[in-house]
């Protein structure tokens, strides 16, 4: 009995030292890691938004979706595109994809930000040939070819391909039915036509 307590205390001492050490390293590296994640997210947003966007700001929609709206200049009159994160359930992970849209809800570009799918199969969802297929697609095309759409699935990784494609399609559908956004698109068109008439 005495021996068990002694061993228990020794193990506790080792675990305690390890815990303190880890806590210290965690607090030291946390701000750095957060900063890296933020930079990475911003870079992904810039990559998927259409060209010509000078400034973008984040909005939270009523359903909790964080939507990034890109404007052509500081005046924030001219909406050039949207970006938002799509999450789909893949084979072995939640696949997170940053989706960029033009104002008429066509896909501008996508970027798979996080996945931990099968190495050599589902991990190809981050290859550029797969992601490039999404550019210019409307929601009707956004199905993998096996399901009757226009996205060529990765060989041997249909589940991962579906996770990306379906999550993107659902997000496009959700955003294109959002009253706030459709209103904004209308205003953008009005501004555009009034610009034309003044010319």
């Amino acid at each position: 009995m005495k021996n068990i307590l002694k061993l228990g205390f020794i193990l506790m001492a080792y675990a305690g030292i390890a815990g303190v050490l880890l806590g210290w390293v965690y607090t030291k590296t946390k701000p750095k890691i957060d900063l890296q994640e933020k930079l990475e997210r911003e870079q992904a947003i810039r990559e998927v938004l259409p060209d010509g966007i000078e400034i973008f700001e984040e909005n939270t929609l009523d359903d909790g979706t964080v939507l990034i709206i890109g404007y052509s200049d500081d005046s924030k009159q001219n909406v050039l595109g949207y970006a938002a994160m799509a999450v789909g359930t893949g084979f072995s992970s939640n696949v997170r994809t940053m989706l960029g849209l033009t104002p008429d809800f066509k896909v501008n570009a996508i970027k798979v930000i996080y996945q931990s799918e099968t190495p050599g199969l589902g991990t190809h969802s981050q290859d550029s040939w797969f992601q490039k297929q999404f550019s210019g697609k409307t929601k009707g095309d956004l199905l993998v070819n096996k399901d009757g759409g226009k996205i060529e699935a990765i060989t041997g990784a249909t589940i991962s391909s579906r996770a990306v494609t379906n999550s993107v399609r659902e997000l496009v559908e959700k955003l294109s039915h959002n009253p706030k956004l459709t209103r904004m698109q209308k205003t953008a068109e009005d501004t555009l036509s009034s610009d034309n008439s003044s010319n």
Binding site: Y14, V25, T29, K32
Partner: peptide
């Protein structure tokens, strides 16, 4: 104890790599 040492070490490597 060995597992504690190894896991601690791996976690430190992971955190430092993610940050720097």
């Amino acid at each position: 104890i060995f597992i504690t040492v190894i896991a601690t070490f791996v976690t430190i490597v992971k955190l430092v790599m993610a940050g720097y």
